[in-house]
Amino acid sequence: MNDEALSGWRSRLAEKGEQVAFLKDFLKNLFRGGFEWSEFIRQCYEIGYKSFTLVGTTAFIMGLVMAMQLRPTLISFGAESMLPKSLAVSIIKEIGPVITAIICAGKIASGIGAELGSMKVTEQIDAMEVSGANPMQFLVVTRILATTAMVPLLTLLGDVLGLLGGFLAININGSVSLLLYFNKCIASLGFSDLLPAFIKTIFFGFVIGFIGCYKGYNSNKGTESVGIAANSAVVVASLWIFVIDAIVVQVSNTLIY
């Protein structure tokens, strides 16, 4: 029993070490010449554009539902006019980045984990390596950079759609012009709200790509390990998202106030 627990810890520590080595490998290949632009753009298409419908729909509905949920509470102490402000602050600072990142972890991290896992199982990664090509550079660097670049953009567009969802919900009950709503949202935000939120989405994107690639690239050779890679990529990436969220809030609060 004791030995098993110890080996559990050992394997976890060993995995952390492998992740650090993987990160080192990624950074080494990142600054090596011959960046795979074409594959990067294809990954941007797959990761960014193709996730937009999902992220956009979810964000829109989140905004709508939040506005509907907040309205009665705010009305009960006569602060209905605070609705755009509370929506803007909560969506931009927390709901938008985290919901988008969690959805991306579910869609993108699992996709990358499964794709690279199956490439590992069918010896494609080995084939690339043995042929003298650089699978790290072609498969991993492009994917991690694509998620790092696309998740922030998805979040920004998701924020906009979430606010539009809130606008729709407000207009179901009353009538507010888009201009007033927009002005109120903007007026309630400062750079101290926007910047930490934007910066953390970059980290979210990196973690999603990194964990997805690590789990896929290091999966075992066996059909079931593809599923394990995809699954653990989602679990670990989601966990990291919340950890990063907590750290960023703490750091940005310390820096700003």
């Binding site: 941007c44 298409y45 554009y49 953009l153 998805l154």
Partner: peptide, 9 residues
């Protein structure tokens, strides 16, 4: 489409 998406973001 990727370009449009990036531009919009």
């Amino acid at each position: 489409r990727t370009g449009l998406f990036v531009m919009a973001g």
